[in-house]
Design a protein around this nucleic acid. Structure first.
Length: 283
DNA sequence: ATGGGGGCCTGCCGGC
DNA sequence: TGCCGGCAGGCCCCCA
């Protein structure tokens, strides 16, 4: 579920029940996810007020009153389930514990935040809020695609001399942080660029055109996810409804949606991951 | 330095 | 019914 728009949707869902609220108890049900949890994680979370929930790329950052920040990454299969919310927006009762409920935050307002992650590619860590951007996982990240630092000349420069397929370049979080497999496929479709094209061999004008396209795709997806908060309540954590707007992702064999294009969406594998594209209009 | 591939995990689905 | 291969929205790390 989690590329930038999904993580932002999760953040927006969590904020009303977490911001300004004390973590009464942190229930940690295993020692690790992808990596071991930080030392004494439960103790360092207990009694802390969540001052603010932020997002950087695909990471959720919870600034705590202790001066520490809780970093959360959902990996491939991570979910944040809200229950018992006093605002009444979500299910009021707490569901029975599920398999893979690895961390449960019991909030002072009665809400319960359950981190469930079957594949355990997720991450949780704690670090000083001051200088959080120097955390190993954050320090290497490129600009936020929806921020001012992501602009045409930056992408043109980043692509210069790169011999890697543009698909890989856009997935490279050091170039721009937050895109994943789905939104790269969708952005390349809209830009009519083949995912196989080498990044360094695309005309500067076409690279520049990718910038507003990437912003549009992400913003549309956030808008779609943002209006589907019921997905949290129902705990299925699916993609809002932007999935119905996919032009190429998951549409192998279906007709290309470009007007007057006779192509059929194809699937190829690039560095072990599926790329969906139209071989006729994406060049 | 850059690019490619392996590996980390579980669950689900289709084919035999 | 069961087993097996393939696939899944991510990303670190190692190797050439």
């Amino acid at each position: 579920m989690p590329e930038l728009p999904e993580v932002e949707t999760v953040r927006r869902g969590l904020a009303p029940v977490m911001e300004g609220v004390v973590i009464e108890r942190a229930e940690i049900n295993r020692p690790d996810l992808r990596w071991p949890f930080p030392l004494h994680m439960a103790e360092r979370l207990t009694g802390q007020r969540v001052a603010r929930l932020r997002r950087r790329s695909k990471y959720i950052l919870a600034d705590l009153s202790s001066g520490e920040t809780l970093l959360i990454h959902l990996g491939m299969s991570g979910r944040m389930l809200i229950s018992g919310d006093p605002l009444g927006t979500f299910a009021h009762t707490h569901p029975a514990a599920q398999k893979h409920d690895h961390v449960v935050l019991h909030m002072a307002n009665g809400a319960r935040i359950t981190f469930n992650d079957p594949r355990r590619f997720g991450v949780m860590d704690l670090m000083p809020t001051d200088g959080a951007d120097t955390h190993k996982l954050l320090a290497v990240l490129g600009p936020e695609p929806l921020g001012n630092d992501f602009h045409e000349s930056l992408l043109v420069d980043a692509f210069k001399g790169r011999n890697t397929p543009v698909k890989s370049a856009l997935l490279d979080q050091r170039i721009v942080a937050g895109l994943g497999n789905i939104y790269v496929c969708e952005a390349l479709f809209r830009a009519r660029i083949s995912p196989k094209r080498k990044a360094g061999r695309i005309a500067a004008g076409r690279v520049a055109a990718l910038v507003p396209i990437i912003r549009d795709v992400l913003q549309e997806a956030i808008a779609a996810g943002g209006s589907s908060l019921r997905d949290f309540r129902q705990a299925d954590g699916e993609l809002g409804y932007f999935q119905h707007s996919f032009d190429v992702y998951g549409r192998e064999g279906a007709p290309c949606r470009t007007p007057d294009c006779t192509g059929t969406v194809a699937r190829i594998v690039q560095s072990g991951r599926s790329s969906f594209y139209c071989p006729v209009c994406q060049r």
